[in-house]
Design a protein around this nucleic acid. Structure first.
Lengths: 241, 241
DNA sequence: TAAATAAAATGATTTTAGTCAGGAATAAAT
DNA sequence: ATTTATTCCTGACTAAAATCATTTTATTTA
């Protein structure tokens, strides 16, 4: 693996001046609050494939993804991986665990070279307890996530594999957007798409091959381009167990 | 259906003096805040099987379940029912929808004769925006729910039907407790257990019959008693797709 | 109480998805 | 550049769960 991109991750600016902050939940905090967080954080870089934190470990602070992409995974009793969340800048990775105070209930893994700010828990909680607007913004974020989970749950449990893969591709394109040449801007293994759609890699491969044959998508190595979004939408809603 | 129990639901006391309040998220509010909520609420009774509110409708306030039990459901595209939540006193039914401001994303149905306080949205939000401790308590509640959803998701997607039913029975007993004669204190149709475990009623029936034959549970009409909790636990973790 | 309706139970069958094995293509490492 | 290790792909087979049909048993309703 080339280390260039990893090494070249830019030095993170102060939270106060960080331009990405305005895109995150931290927007709306006062300069004083941001300064408090800034003084009590560290920045860590992770290579593609590296584990950011592990299930059952004690949280060490709020993980804020500045650069890169990450997946949040859990393992079934048989050891099979399930993706319970995907993250991009500037998402908080472990906010719900931080709020409950438990140990991590999932594992976070970098999908590409990534940079993470780790904000000290105590100081974060101080800001949270002192700013009701911030608390409410977080509350809204949680509520939205909860509703999305409910929808996802129905999708996964009620739709057949073709619909589930179609759904995953649409959601991925909406969440990560596109590269300049039109591919979905994330590189996932077939196994990751399986972990995302609750199915086996073999079936993901078969389904994606079928979509390719029907000219609904085009694949170039691990990159996927959607050629016929309407048809993909139809597939995602039509078939059901 | 007998109306006696329905009619006999007690008149709800003021929020300020309501003894149930101390068991709910409303605990910790000041008398003044409670008074504000109390003055802006109505109490509605629902019969067993009645719809409390419906998906896609506009929320009319915070639904607080005082008496009875309720299920929150969504429908698949084919019309199949999926239970995304179960409620008991004193739970909020629609809190996440209220926070996001969307229309209802699910339907609430009374599982038995129930009484619901509907607290005015504007006044609830006023209290929420004015009390950072309350906001944080809600936040913790959301975070816990989120983590529970993640666990449930893994259980449902990774385990086989026998394990899923075993899991559902254990969770039901933990959530609703027991009657004096040892049965799980909730009366669900086999179809409800199916909607809870993402499977078909026929398979729930088969599985429950099998558990009965093995003396793991005992059924009396719709009531279920757990005879061998250890074995049920084992079943809930051992088998997996 | 009787009739009607709904729910539970069971068996046969079909559909769906998982498993396993072997080879081709990619990507990573030496 | 070559080896090594992954990942991708395909087909044959197996297992799991859904579907459908029918009977029995409960529950409502009149």
């Amino acid at each position: 693996m080339k280390d260039a991109a990893y090494v070249n991750l830019k030095i993170q600016p102060s939270c106060v001046t960080c331009t990405k902050r305005t895109l995150s939940l931290l927007e709306g905090l006062t300069d004083h609050e941001l300064e408090l967080l800034n003084e009590n954080r560290i920045v860590i870089n992770f290579k593609k494939g590296e584990t950011i934190y592990k299930e059952n470990c004690k949280p060490s602070g709020l993980y804020c993804l500045n650069e890169g992409k990450a997946k949040l995974i859990k393992h079934s009793l048989k050891g099979r991986e399930i993706i319970i969340g995907l993250k991009k800048p500037v998402d908080f990775l472990d906010i719900e665990t931080l709020v409950t105070g438990e140990n991590y209930t999932h594992t976070a893994v970098a999908l590409e070279n990534s940079s993470v700010c780790i904000i000290d828990e105590t100081h974060f909680n101080k800001v949270l307890m002192g700013n009701v607007t911030f608390a409410n913004k977080l509350l809204q974020n949680f509520a939205t996530t909860l509703i999305e989970y409910q929808n996802h749950f129905v999708n996964i449990t009620q739709k057949q594999i073709h619909a589930r893969v179609a759904d995953a591709l649409i959601k991925l394109s909406e969440f990560y957007g596109y590269t300049t040449d039109g591919y979905i801007d994330v590189s996932l293994k077939r196994q990751d798409i399986a972990a995302l759609s609750s199915m086996t890699p073999a079936n993901v491969i078969r389904t994606i091959s079928a979509f390719e044959k029907e000219k609904i998508i085009e694949c170039n190595k691990k990159r996927i381009k959607i050629l016929n979004r309407e048809q993909l939408q139809e597939i995602s809603i039509e078939k059901e167990k």
